[in-house]
Each structure stands twice: as structure tokens, then as C-alpha cells.
């Protein structure tokens, strides 16, 4: 493919994919979807960037080391279960609130969603570990380009 076309496509598509992935993750509570599929979708966005601009650029766009991203996600998921313990309720009990968002009857937010967000991050981090790891494994013949 023409690299210019590829770059353009990637530049346009990646943010869209990221947005869709977030929607999938957040709305997953009510419609099919969820943190897992959302996280994979987000990873696809970065994979696209990698195909277009190469591994280092994709790695740079991700900003965080993928394994750290996964670790952070795990921490978020774990942490979402802790607040109820402060109230003397069991670990991972749901706490819900309704945020007043103008134009709707309020947006429901709760720790289970935070949990799902954690899963989203774990999946994104893991998928990026796979993708970036594979890509590094691929150029075993080429000199390592850092990262």
C-alpha cells in the first residue's frame, strides 16, 4: 500500500477506533460489549499505528510500557473493590451513584464500571505486550531499535 495513504488512514482511524473501544467498554453493562472487547479494539488502534509508522512510533504513542499498563489496569480493577470494604461491606461490592448530567436523567456511575475499566486497561496492555513483543521478535535479524 502506498505509505502516504496508509499513514493517513491510520491517523484517521486510530482515534475513531479508540473512541469506539471506550464506548464498547462503558456501555457494555447494558448492551453486548464490555471491557474485554473494548480493550482489544483499542489495541487494534495501536496495531494500526504500528503497521503504518513502525514499532517505535506505536510504542511512543502508547506512552506507557504495555506491561505497566496491564499492571495499572489490574490495580484499578482491584482498587474498585476496596471502597466498599471501608464501609464494612465485602470486597467488590458495587457502589453506585447518579451523576447529574444535563439533558439526561443523570448518568449512573459505579465501582463495577471502574472494575470494567480496569479490565479494559489490562486487555489493552496485554494485547500491546503481544503485539509489540511479536514485532520485536520478528526483527531478530535486524538490529534492535531500542524500546
Amino acid at each position: 500500500m502506498n505509505p502516504v495513504v496508509m499513514h493517513t488512514v491510520a491517523r484517521l482511524m486510530a482515534p475513531v477506533l479508540l473512541l469506539v473501544s471506550l464506548v464498547l467498554a462503558v456501555r457494555g453493562h447494558d448492551i453486548p460489549g464490555g471491557g474485554f472487547v473494548g480493550g482489544l479494539m483499542a489495541a487494534t488502534a495501536f496495531a494500526l499505528l504500528m503497521v503504518a509508522f513502525g514499532r517505535p512510533a506505536a510504542r511512543k504513542q502508547l506512552r506507557v510500557h504495555p506491561t505497566r499498563l496491564a499492571a495499572a489496569g489490574l490495580l484499578v480493577a482491584l482498587f474498585s473493590g476496596v471502597p466498599p470494604m471501608m464501609q464494612g461491606r465485602p470486597f467488590l461490592s458495587g457502589i453506585w451513584a447518579r451523576l447529574p448530567v444535563p439533558g439526561t436523567d443523570g448518568l449512573k456511575v459505579g465501582t463495577p464500571q471502574l472494575f470494567d475499566l480496569g479490565i479494559y486497561l489490562v486487555v489493552l496492555g496485554t494485547a500491546m505486550s503481544f503485539i509489540l513483543g511479536m514485532a520485536r521478535g520478528e526483527d531478530t535479524t535486524a538490529p534492535e531499535m531500542g524500546g
Binding site: 504495555p66 496491564a70 489490574l74 472494575f115 480496569g118 479490565i119 489490562v122 503481544f130 513483543g133
Partner: peptide
Amino acid sequence: TLGEATVLATSGLGVY
């Protein structure tokens, strides 16, 4: 799901 996420993160780490 927490356990599942842990497995996934572990294997990601392993692959990397």
C-alpha cells in the same frame, strides 16, 4: 474476572 485479568496480564508479561 479479576482472576481472568490476572492470567491475561501474566501471560502478556510472559510473552513480552
